[in-house]
Each structure stands twice: as C-alpha cells, then as structure tokens.
Design a binder for these strands. Sequence first.
DNA 1: AGGCTCCATTAGACCGGTCGTCTATGGATG
DNA 2: CATCCATAGACGACCGGTCTAATGGAGCCT
Lengths: 195, 195
Amino acid sequence: MEHQNDTRSRILTTGRRLTAQQGYTGVGLSTLLKEAGIPKGSFYHYFASKEAYGCALLSEFMTEYSHRLNASLAHPDMNARSRLLTYFEGWREKQLSPHLEDRCLVVKLSAEVADLSENMSNILQKGVSDIVAHLTKTIEQGQNEGTIASIENPQTLAEMIYHMWLGASLVASISHSAAALNSAMDATKVLVPAP
Amino acid sequence: MEHQNDTRSRILTTGRRLTAQQGYTGVGLSTLLKEAGIPKGSFYHYFASKEAYGCALLSEFMTEYSHRLNASLAHPDMNARSRLLTYFEGWREKQLSPHLEDRCLVVKLSAEVADLSENMSNILQKGVSDIVAHLTKTIEQGQNEGTIASIENPQTLAEMIYHMWLGASLVASISHSAAALNSAMDATKVLVPAP
DNA sequence: AGGCTCCATTAGACCGGTCGTCTATGGATG
DNA sequence: CATCCATAGACGACCGGTCTAATGGAGCCT
C-alpha cells in the first residue's frame, strides 16, 4: 500500500520534470516511463489514459503550488506588501532556475492544453482562480493595514498583475533572458505602491 | 515560378490554421499535407525540415502582424490614445473569434517553442520586441500630444501592458471565456489614462 | 518535328516512435 | 496454498520526420 504510491508519484515527479521542458504532447509514454525506470504495464494500472495522467500531474502541481503560495502569503513577520513582493521575487527565481521542473506549468501548458483537453484546462483554470483569489486577499489586507495604497480595486489589480507575470514569463522564456521578469518586478512595485 | 509559391504558401496557410488550434508539435506533416491537398513528397522540396517550415510560418505571421499593427497605430483620424485602445480591442476580438487561424501565435506557441527550437524562439522574440517598440512609440506620441497622461515611462508601460495582454489571452483560452480579456481592456484604460 | 536533357516535383518506402491493450508472471497476504 | 494486486514487456495499429528513386514535362538542339 506504500509501494503503489511510490510508483505513482515517481511517474508524476518524472513527468513534471520532463513536461516542464518538453510540454505535454512532447513527452511520450515510452520516454516518460523509461526515464522513470518503470515498466509500461504499470502505467495503465495507475492511470486510465494519458489524459488522466495529465490531469493528475496538473492537479498535484496546482495543489502544491497553492500550499506554497498560502505559506508565502501568510508569513507572520512581514506586512502584506512585502509578502506580495516576496512571492513575485520567488516566481522570478523559479522561472530563471536551472531546475526546469520548478517552472510554472500554467505558463508552460496553458496554450497547449487549451484546445486539447477540457479536463486539463479546467484544472488549470481553477488553479488560476485560486491564485488570483489569494493575491486579491493579500492586497486587501495591505490596503486595510495601510501598507498598500488603495488606488485600485483589489480584484482588478490582482488579475492585472497576475496576467502581467504570466506574459512576462512567456517572453522571458522565448528570449532566454531575465529582462521581462525584472521589468514585471519593477512594474509590480509601482502597481502596488506603499502609501 | 508561380506554381511553386502557390504550393509553398498553401502549406503555410493551412499550417497556420491547424497550428493555431493544435500547436506546433501537435500538427504532424501527414495531417498538414493531407489537409492542404499536397503530396507528402513535396514537403522537403519547399522546406529543409519541419523546423524550417515552422520558422517560415512564424516569420510570415510576424510580418503580417507587424504590417497590420503599423496600419492600426498610424490611423490618421484618431489620437494616439484611441489608436492604442483600438488595437487592443482588435486583439480581444481576434482572440475570441471563431476563426481559430486569427489567434495570436505568440500566445499559442511561445511556451511550446521556447525549449524546442532556438530559431523559432528568436523569430518570436524579435516580433515581440517590434510590437513593444510600436506600442512605446504610440504612448510617447500620446504623451506629447496630450491625450495620454505622462505618469509613467513609455517603454515600461508598453511592456507591462503587452505582458498583461499575453497573460490575459492565456487565461482566456483555458477558461474559454472573455472575462480575462475584458479585464485586460479595463486595466489598459486605467493604465493609459486620458489627462 | 523528333529526340534528348535536365530538373522541379512527387510517390512512397523507411525506421523509429506514438498510445493503448493484453496476457503472463511475480510476490505478498490471508 | 489460493487469491489478487502489481509488474513485466510483447504487440498492434498507426503516425512521426526524412530521404531516395522515379516521373513527367518544359526547353533546347539538331
């Protein structure tokens, strides 16, 4: 009862690494399983189809992400504005990291998956809503505690900043450069001004 | 000398339509050529490889896009701010259009291509720089002619807005909804305020 | 006009990979 | 020893990008 979860999560972990580099369609079952050192027969014991595996991959990623986000945005020793900026610093670092598996799957897979799998799209979409909701809440807190100026509706602001970071990550990835992410970081500081 | 270009551009046109839906890896040569009604053997007469075809596809798209952008941002009967807003209205419409082939290939392909083909990445990246440069120039004009308030550096503002639209397009595509794009439209009006 | 060359174009073979299925075997548990 | 979850990996049918060998028609020479 332990072993089976080992195998399953080994597939998922390896899958995340490969998928973060080569995309969903780009990673075939053979490649994935060979890399994970798991025989093909096992795959269909744990997953009903490649799409089901894709959904599991995304679900797990979004769950973990949400936990880390929660922790990061709930840090007790910082004010809301600092917590927000720290989160985005973390985003930048991850996106530039040599560990490809750290990169955000929303950035990597959204476009590919949108017209491919309704189920996978839904998972991504729900994850995105969650993230934006968290950001909105933090901005609200900042406005209430007075570390963020109330010049804008928190929800609108959160969406805007999140969208900007997604786009900046896209541009950073095609230009193999940190410039777009640095520019997003600067913009974020301006958009979320200290009073 | 005519026929060969016919065939070539037929491949490219069909390719754009299919790729806008299914991505680069997602469209195989057989599918593409069958759809275009062109025999498989011909492909390598017109393109050295699938990557070369991908580059041609992207180059052509970016060139056309740049032309339309130029026209749109140079419209004589509007002030700079209106031209800018009209461009983004156009973006929204295209992204929501039932004609899938109208959708922006920067949105669709950036993530997929970034770790796949250096050449294709470069074409996208150059295209993006061009677009941002155009937007920057228009914002500058607006600030000079007094239709856009000078509260921000034009270049920074242009990047920020463009990134936001890329991200919003991504979110719109996974949620199969116009909400993210509408939100981006609203945000754009706020970010580029009339004085 | 007839023959010939040349080269753009194409047919289709090629090999390796794709996803998914299925049977046969392990090995632990009761 | 019987049961059953988990593993093993062969297999099918099909699709991936690439390349070589053949076709056919336009243009030139005699």
